[in-house]
Write a protein that binds this DNA or RNA. Sequence first.
DNA 1: AGATTTATTGACCGTATGGTCAATAGAGGG
DNA 2: CCCTCTATTGACCATACGGTCAATAAATCT
Lengths: 204, 204
Amino acid sequence: MSAPPGGPRRRLDEDRRRAQIITAAVEVLDEVGYGAATLTRIADCAAVSKGLIWHYFTGKDDLMTAVAESTLTTLTDGIADGLDRTAPVPDVLRSALRGAADLSRTHRKELNALYRIVHNLHGPDGTPKMTLAFYETTYQAQENLFRRGQVEGSLRDFDTRVMAVTYQGAVDMMLGYLNEHPETEPRAYADALADLLLNGIERS
Amino acid sequence: MSAPPGGPRRRLDEDRRRAQIITAAVEVLDEVGYGAATLTRIADCAAVSKGLIWHYFTGKDDLMTAVAESTLTTLTDGIADGLDRTAPVPDVLRSALRGAADLSRTHRKELNALYRIVHNLHGPDGTPKMTLAFYETTYQAQENLFRRGQVEGSLRDFDTRVMAVTYQGAVDMMLGYLNEHPETEPRAYADALADLLLNGIERS
DNA sequence: AGATTTATTGACCGTATGGTCAATAGAGGG
DNA sequence: CCCTCTATTGACCATACGGTCAATAAATCT
C-alpha cells in the first residue's frame, strides 16, 4: 500500500555517524533543553532517520550517556591543554580557572548540553545517574593538588575535601553565570574568582 | 455501562487540599525525580483523584511552580529564623551557613524537590523558568551584606558580585554534598566552609 | 426540606514519545 | 556479475502522559 522503506542515501563510516548523531544531540540539547530533546528532533537535526539511532545506541539513555562522556572528554581536554601541572599550585589554579572560563565562549553548546544531561538523566529509581561518581573523580584530583600545595608550603592548612567541593561549585556557578551574562568578561571573572579563592587558602 | 463517577468521600478545606497536594508533590519529586513525577503518581500519593489537581492548579507547570514557591518560602524562613541580621557581617555569614547546613537534615525532601524543579522546569523554548530571576534576588541580598561588611571595615575589598555567585555555589554544593554523604556532620562542614570563605574576604 | 453550590470522582481523549522491524539499496568480495 | 552483508529507511506499535468533562454527593443556603 504505502511506499516501501527506502534504502540509504549515503553510507557513512560508523564512527563518523556516531559522532554526527552525538553532535546533533549536543545541538538540540543546547537549543531546546533535555525534556524537549526528543529522538525525532535529534534525528532530524542530524539529517538521519529516527530508526538509525537504535543501530548505534541501545536507547535514549545510552545516547545521552555517550553524549555526556564525549562532551566531558572534550571539555577536560580543553582545560588540560596549556596547563602546566608541575607549576606552583596557585599558578595551576589560576590557569585552570582561566581555562574553564574560556570554555564558556569556545564550548558554550557543549557546556550547556552536559549541564542538562547531568541534571536530567536519572536512573529508574530517580537517582541521578552521573552526578556522584562524576564529581568524585574531580574531587580527588583537586584534593591531590591542594595537598601538594600544602606540602610544598604554598598553601596553608585547610579541609581539602570541603575546598574541593567548594571549588567545583565555584566553577560551575562561574560557567552558568558567564553563560547567562554574555556581557561579563570571562577572564576578568576568572581572575576575580582566583583572587577570592586563593586569598582563602594561600599561605600569607 | 460503567460505574458512574463517584462523588467525594470527604470534603476538605480548600487550602488544606492545596497544601496536601503540594506536600505529595514534594514527596514524589524527592523519591522519583522530576521526569517520573507524573500527576497520576502525585495524585495517588495524595490519596486523591487525578482530576482534582486541575481544580486547584491550571496544569502541571502551575503545580510545580506552586511547589517551588511554597518550598522556597519554607526554606528561607527556616534560615531566617535565629539569624540576627544586625550582627557583624562575618558572624551573620557563619550563622547563615550553619542554618543552611542544618536544612540538609531538617528539610531534606524539600531541598531535593526544589532542586529538581529548578533544574527541570523549562519554558516552551527550553529556557529555564526559575533559575535566573530566582538567583538574582539572593545575589543582590548577598551583595548588600558584603558591602555592609566592607563599609564597616570587617571585610576587605573584593568583587561583591563574583563573591555572591561563588557563595551561592558553595551553599548549593554543600547541600548537595551533605545530601549524598549523610555521614558528614553538617555543622562541621558549615564551619569549615565558613573558615575558607571568610579567610578569603575578611580583613586581616 | 428543598434548592444551590462545588469539591470530587472516574472514565475518556489526543498526542507524542521511545522503541520495533521488515524491506531496501549500496558497498565489497569472490 | 552475482552474492552477501549491513547501514539505512519509513511505516508501525504500545504506552503513558497531560488534560477534559459529565456525573455525583456532601456541604451550605434559604
